[in-house]
Design a protein around this nucleic acid. Structure first.
Lengths: 215, 215
DNA sequence: TAATTTAGATTGTGATCGTTCTCTATCTGT
DNA sequence: ACAGATAGAGAACGATCACAATCTAAATTA
């Protein structure tokens, strides 16, 4: 006992944080763990225990901040949507200075739809069918996601958006195509077939553009 | 007790059936109940109890014919795929005598993607990500579904298929678009926006056709 | 018709589900 | 420094999960 208590500094750093810091940090852990769980094991296997195990947060910790599992899921849906929108924005902002904006835009759009977080997004879209509460909560989140996507697209091609009343439908049909491709990729992905389809769609885009110039 | 046993005919018809008839009938009940459950309450809620309740078959009856829940799910996946393919075929066979085959084909294709069974199909596609066994089983089923779809499309437009090497990619990109539309419809459906997109795609199809004639 | 096999119903089992409860640790206002 | 409030840990709850074991009904074979 000669040198005991000589240095009272605890080995585990106390890391003094405010209550709101503590709260936000564990909520962030829960968000990340839930999103990862949705991506890796799917909605059906994203249980409370699964989330707690991945986040390192206890059941008690989880239910302090969320009154139910579905409440957390909904919060994660909003978070995932925000992340995806931010990615859209960041990439499309770069795009304004691209050489071949049409092809580059198409590639970036596809890249976004193949994003890791997009898998969580699809899990939530499909799961919403089976859960009335989730579905109701998803409607505004989904609407915002859709609107912001169109917003950035029209920011890249302002003239086109001006001259063509069907511009939004045009963009959405392309996005839908990549979404369908992403769903099928859940089962099997054929890179070459993807490339061939991209060329077909690029023809489609160019035809749409040239038709616009004609008018 | 005067007239008791006078007529030994049981009130509940005995309906004498062979063993294989009995077997097939309950398996059909299980298939239908599972498909309906997938559509109505989603994959996450399609439990063994749920299936038994809907089909009127007991747990014991279910596990006599399927060694596990996932075995039944896989069999249902094959069944749903077959139903969808049969629908494709039936509708496209009618199509060969249509006036405006392009627009009619597009409408029928969209109709197929909006089919009730297609919701079960998407549930299975997405759920397969979270279940290695299901995913492995889905690969050949999915591949067959994809191949047969292309087969019927090329049967309707044999000349186009001949002259254009990218015909398959062309068809698949359109199918993908409708699939993406169907996924979004899980949350919210905007009929007018769907119509506007259909017109855009119809322009796309016509452009593809006229480009073909040019060559 | 008797023996055997197959179909199907019922009940039970251990694991896991979402949620609640109790208790301790940490932070905040005084 | 002390009291009150908030954050988080962990055990326990009833319900439900996939599945197994046991048993009865029906069809087949002899």
């Amino acid at each position: 006992m000669s040198n005991a208590q000589a240095v009272p500094v605890p080995l585990i750093a106390p890391t003094r944080r405010t209550q709101s810091q503590r709260k936000e940090e564990t909520m962030r852990k829960l968000f990340d763990a839930t999103r990862e769980s949705l991506i890796e094991v799917g909605y059906a296997n994203t249980s409370v225990s699964q989330i707690c195990k991945r986040s390192g947060v206890s059941h008690g910790g989880l239910f302090r901040h969320f009154s139910s599992r579905i409440d957390l899921i909904i919060a994660v849906a909003q978070d995932v949507s925000n992340k995806l929108i931010d990615l859209y924005q960041a990439r499309f902002e770069e795009l304004t200075s691209a050489k071949d904006p049409f092809e580059t835009a198409l590639l970036l759009l596809r890249q976004n739809c193949r994003e890791r977080d997009n898998q969580a997004w699809f899990e939530l879209l499909v799961a919403a069918r089976g859960d009335e509460t989730l579905q109701q909560a998803m409607i505004p989140i989904w609407a915002e996601n859709r609107a912001r996507t169109l917003e950035y697209a029209s920011r890249v091609f302002p003239d086109l958006r001006q001259s063509r009343p069907d511009f939004d439908s045009f963009i959405e049909s392309i996005v839908n195509q990549f979404h369908g491709e992403a769903i099928n990729a859940f089962i099997f992905s054929d890179g070459e077939a993807d490339e061939r389809r991209l060329r077909v769609i690029l023809d489609f885009v160019r035809a749409y553009m040239s038709a616009s110039i004609k008018e």
